[in-house]
Design a binder for these strands. Structure first.
Lengths: 257, 257
DNA sequence: CGGCTAATTGAAGCCATTCAAGGTAAGTGG
DNA sequence: CCACTTACCTTGAATGGCTTCAATTAGCCG
């Protein structure tokens, strides 16, 4: 997708989306996603001391809810999340899907309260990062500050990319762009860009894409007929990456080859 | 609108959207928008020393272009800007409209190059803020850092709000939400929330709202027939704020009364 | 098994687009 | 000053893509 940011794949590729077990950031498979590269041992220790406890969630659990006071950022260690908001009318819309190495809660800094609700799409684990401590750390370690600024700016790019999707793409193009977005993010994490599970429901996808769940369902069926994908419930295989890219971007890209 | 952030109106309300003339930040009418409150004289001087020269632009001038290397952020002193991007296919879409006190270029931090093109919608002036110097300043003055983080986070909120508009609102609701967004931002700056000029073309509005210019034109005509607005070319007067809000949010808000 | 949620599929209808033509205001050059 | 150009905007008619409403199916868990 558009604002896709190229990061480094995890050092140790453990099987099912799971970050390394016991230990601190230095051992975390996704440290290159949430920390600056090239921190010294000493600095790394300072970062680790700023990070709070880990929290486990099971599918359906809410990590934070829109409107709650903001205190912590969260880094996803493993699992998947979805952030959504509700309209004045109660209409729900999904602002993003997050996976290992992604950060949650950034949109809360501006007003001091969470703007969205983060829900675990499967059993997951996060690192709690107290924002006050992170701020103190950023004063001490400008590298960490710069990294944080890039992280926030990339969040802006992601949202702008979503604006493009919603603003100018047709329904099939939107869906293609979502599938490719997920594919690219799995690739960055060392997983297969061709086969993965859709962790979210058709309804979640629809609410992310500004469509109805019926349209998403119909389009997935069409993609299957056209042999662009194979799909069994939520088990997805991308068969024709190039044509999906042509749909999503109008240009044949180079991803996944 | 949704992610609207309440800021403080300018100290000296000079006539036509013009910031105070000669002088530094301490004298700028919009300092409360781009600087933290309650800086000491000394700290203010340090901030001022970090800010680069001012730049004047005439209508149509491009401040920066998507793809250009990133070096400076810009604070709008007076005038109006529009940020837009182009698709892989060359399809243009507008990511935002900026006015006095707003910041430009934040989305460039992530990748080190500008993601969007900023165009002056009328004769305007900006303060150039070298990002490297701002970074150094933030290390020294945590207040400035925190303020900057809020600014970035609010940019995220704005974009998410745009996602809502594009994702779940109908065309008339989208247009209502744009008019109210502008109205609210003028109010925050001490200008009339009821009467103002639309600085952008119908096409720009359409590309911001994910519509065609014909639809925007037709809807403006309908709003006029329904006595929601009065409109002469780009001169707008909001006649029925409450009904516009009902359109945009489904709820009758309290803005503009 | 029954009850539930999630997903699929069909048919009708509407909202926004597309295509097309015409109008208006401002600017330019003779 | 006026014809001409240009950019911007308005309005109409027809099309189509997506939604809405509705019914059915598939998988899951107690």
């Amino acid at each position: 997708m558009d604002a896709q940011v190229f990061r480094i794949a995890p050092a140790g590729k453990s099987g099912g989306g799971q970050a390394d077990e016991g230990g601190k950031c230095g051992r975390c498979a996704y440290r290159t996603l949430c920390l600056p590269l090239g921190l010294s041992e000493r600095d790394l220790a300072r970062v680790e001391s700023a990070i709070g406890c880990r929290r486990r969630l099971v599918r359906g659990d809410v990590l934070f809810r829109a409107g709650q006071p903001f205190g912590n950022l969260f880094a996803v260690r493993f699992g998947h999340f979805m952030t959504s908001r509700s309209d004045y009318r109660g209409e729900r819309y999904v602002t993003g899907f997050q996976m290992a190495g992604d950060m949650l809660g950034i949109d809360a800094i501006g007003n001091g309260e969470h703007a969205s609700t983060a829900t675990a799409l499967e059993d997951s684990e996060v690192c709690e990062i107290p924002y006050a401590r992170l701020q103190a750390l950023m004063v001490e370690l400008p590298q960490v500050m710069e990294h944080f600024h890039r992280t926030m700016s990339q969040e802006i790019l992601r949202d702008q990319s979503a604006i493009r999707v919603l603003g100018i793409l047709r329904a099939d193009e939107r869906l293609a762009s979502l599938l490719l977005n997920l594919s690219g993010r799995y690739a960055m994490r060392g997983f297969s860009p061709r086969r993965f599970q859709l962790r979210m429901s058709r309804d979640d996808m629809a609410r992310y894409l500004g469509l109805t769940l019926e349209t998403v369902s119909r389009l997935l069926a069409r993609f299957r007929e056209q042999r662009l994908i194979r799909l069994d419930r939520r088990e997805l295989e991308i068969l024709d990456m190039a044509r999906l890219e042509t749909l999503a971007t109008g240009v044949q890209g180079a991803a996944g080859r």
